[in-house]
Amino acid sequence: MVSSAQQVWLPRQFGSLDGLPAGLGYARWDGRSGFPSDPGGVEFYVPPLVQDIRAISRPLALMTRLRAVQALSSGTDELRAELTGSAGRVTLCSARGVHARSTAELALTLMLASLRGIPGFVRDQGRGMWRAEVRPSLCGRSVLIVGHGALGRALEELLVPFGCAVTRVARHERESVRGPVFSVERLPSLVGEADVVVLATPLTPATRRLFDAAVLGRMKDGALLVNVGRGGVVDTAALVDEVRGGRLLAALDVTDPEPLPAGHPLRTAPGVLITPHVGAFTPSLWPRLEDLIRRQLERFAAGEELVNIV
Rank of each mutant, 00 (worst) to 15 (best):
D221V: 10
R288I: 14
I293D: 02
G192E: 02
R288G: 08
A269Q: 05
A250L: 06
L239D: 00
V228H: 05
G231S: 11
T207L: 03
V240Q: 07
G217P: 01
E298R: 08
T204Q: 05
P259D: 12
T275N: 07
G245I: 14
D241S: 15
G263F: 05
V278W: 13
G246Y: 11
E304P: 04
R218N: 10
V197W: 01
D291I: 14
L248D: 00
V226M: 03
D235W: 01
P287F: 14
L260Y: 09
D256W: 09
V272I: 09
T204I: 11
A251H: 02
V243N: 06
P283C: 13
L199M: 09
T275F: 05
A250R: 00
T282I: 09
I274A: 05
T207Y: 04
A214V: 13
L289G: 03
E290K: 12
R299S: 06
L260E: 03
A269R: 02
A213M: 05
R208L: 09
V278H: 12
A262K: 14
G217N: 02
E242D: 09
R208N: 13
A237G: 12
A251D: 06
E290H: 09
P205T: 14
L266C: 12
R218C: 09
D212W: 04
V233S: 03
R208M: 13
P276W: 08
V254E: 02
M219I: 04
F281G: 07
Q296R: 11
F211A: 08
A301L: 04
P259I: 12
V215H: 03
G217M: 01
L249D: 00
F281R: 11
D221R: 06
A280G: 14
R288D: 15
A301Q: 06
D241T: 12
E304M: 10
R244D: 12
